[in-house]
Design a protein around this nucleic acid. Sequence first.
DNA 1: TGTACAATTACAAACGTTTGCAACCCATAA
DNA 2: TTATGGGTTGCAAACGTTTGTAATTGTACA
Lengths: 339, 339
Amino acid sequence: MKKGPVTIKDIARELNVSVSTVSRALADNTLVKIDTRNAVKALAKKYNYQPHFTALSLRSSKTRTLGIIIPQLVHEFFSMVIRGIEDHAYSNGYNVIISSSHESYDREVIDSKALVNGRVDGLMACVSRETNNFDHFKEFVDRNIPLVFFDCICDEIDAPKVVLDDFEAGYQAVKHLIEQGCERIAYVGGPINLLINKDRLAGYNRALSEAGLNTKDDWIIHCDSGDYEAGRLKTEPLIKSKQIDALFAATDMLAIGAIKNLKSIGLRVPQDVMVVGFSNWSISALYEPSLTTMSQPGYEMGQKAAELLIQRINNPDQEINETVVMHSELIVRESSHID
Amino acid sequence: MKKGPVTIKDIARELNVSVSTVSRALADNTLVKIDTRNAVKALAKKYNYQPHFTALSLRSSKTRTLGIIIPQLVHEFFSMVIRGIEDHAYSNGYNVIISSSHESYDREVIDSKALVNGRVDGLMACVSRETNNFDHFKEFVDRNIPLVFFDCICDEIDAPKVVLDDFEAGYQAVKHLIEQGCERIAYVGGPINLLINKDRLAGYNRALSEAGLNTKDDWIIHCDSGDYEAGRLKTEPLIKSKQIDALFAATDMLAIGAIKNLKSIGLRVPQDVMVVGFSNWSISALYEPSLTTMSQPGYEMGQKAAELLIQRINNPDQEINETVVMHSELIVRESSHID
DNA sequence: TGTACAATTACAAACGTTTGCAACCCATAA
DNA sequence: TTATGGGTTGCAAACGTTTGTAATTGTACA
């Protein structure tokens, strides 16, 4: 006789009390008589009553949902970030909606607008490599919707951020190569408009200058993406010129692309050229030679971002925009190590 | 003076008309005078009015949100599926909420219950390897909430399904090895309670028997997971016994684990032992030797699942529970091919 | 017997929207 | 002048909750 799921009204009708009494009884409010409370709770249990999510949202103007905007979904690092976010969000009673912009600025703008309208209580974002205009994010700040950046951040906007110390990571990676005795070290990086790539390159430069080593313009290569193909194509001329004895790549995939080139002209890794990658993707441990790399704690970054965001949601007036800096660790494997 | 986002009420007040008129005007209802309509639309544009998502949901009892339950998030295949689902969902005006059960039955149950309460209009699920009880899914059917299974399906429940023809894929993989001249072919698979693994194994058996070849009990290995480590540990005794000249693995990672063992005792791939994997993960093209594998069209499966689900949502009474079968393709690479 | 107060309950508004129905205005025709 | 009716508009209910306030009980005390 009933159709949809059971509501508070149904329980009220059956028990001949008002909906408000039922509502309070379920909240264990001492205003309602203990007998009534028990009766209500018993019936609710019997009918497996579940509060209507949307109704709650409307009443409280809280959706208990967080939004994520990321450039890519099929990507080990971002998968880890999402897992970190989800774990923290779920255990705090929040749901998560993900929008992947596919590295497209337009899509990023559309998605972010779609998420504003009371769909989410807050947003976590990592900007795409196409993004150079940040107005759509400013709108969040203007509308007072909590916003947290992670990884690829936007420097212009005043919001909490979770980042890796990419400078230090780049510095460590190159320092390690120098300690292995390398002197002619190349850099292969991703899109230079992203802060993370600027920082990794800066770390590279710093380590070199500190060691009194020089680099050359064509030892520094910028790729449009961090993919294997980009790495293979872009590093080919440099590698064929046989000038270098080491290479620091800003992603593991770029590193593997470069290694393919090295192998193809008979150069051995690590004996002839040492290589360090970045991100510690699962492939880097399995590849041969296994790849020295810098860890990128995606899970922890996701957790931290969710934590900051929920904190921000719960204290909307508190305007502390802290930047949490995570640290990368050098993982030494075969590609940069001779026994 | 105003606080939250602008509502239909605000527009009504400013224009001295009723909310209903504004509502109709925005819907371009010809009942309202064209002048009024234009005035309303102009003001809505000026204030960047966005309909309140939650209010719409409550009114229409539609959330325009789809739920996904998957065993793992950090997984190339599932990432592809999600991308396929999201692309289709977004372009049809749906959002997506993902719950990853982390291969845990309990988590799967909790998540699915959480999604029932009017949070989603429908659900897509891939059961975890721990799952042998399907009551929580039956609840969806009972409650008449549209449900679609993909990949790891539940046979007992009458719902639309999107699956790979795992039998045919297994058959093709092994047939290919036989055509390469292999005669002593082993199988390494994932958890056998999952239908997909049963089917891949059945395909293996069929190809063998069709070719008049025999197998042995200890040439068939079942792992608890499809991971690299599982593959490496579980295949070690078999490989050290040097009985086989080929191996079909139910995942690329299992295949690579096995290849590591082969290499460690000096056996060459493909010269001494040929290997075929499954899923065509990106690592399989990059690994050396590059890995012959069966494609697994995750993106397309996701798209199809979303399509079926939205279809189901729009026609709730239509009880056609079709099963869509996708096909896998053999991708021949170095690990099973001698020039 | 009436009053006061505590205990318990119900009513109503609100969150932002859509939509059936009633009501209004004005012009045209009887 | 009054009725008819098309063109516009507003009212109110509904979706499922929560919560401030009012109303109803019952009991004890004067």
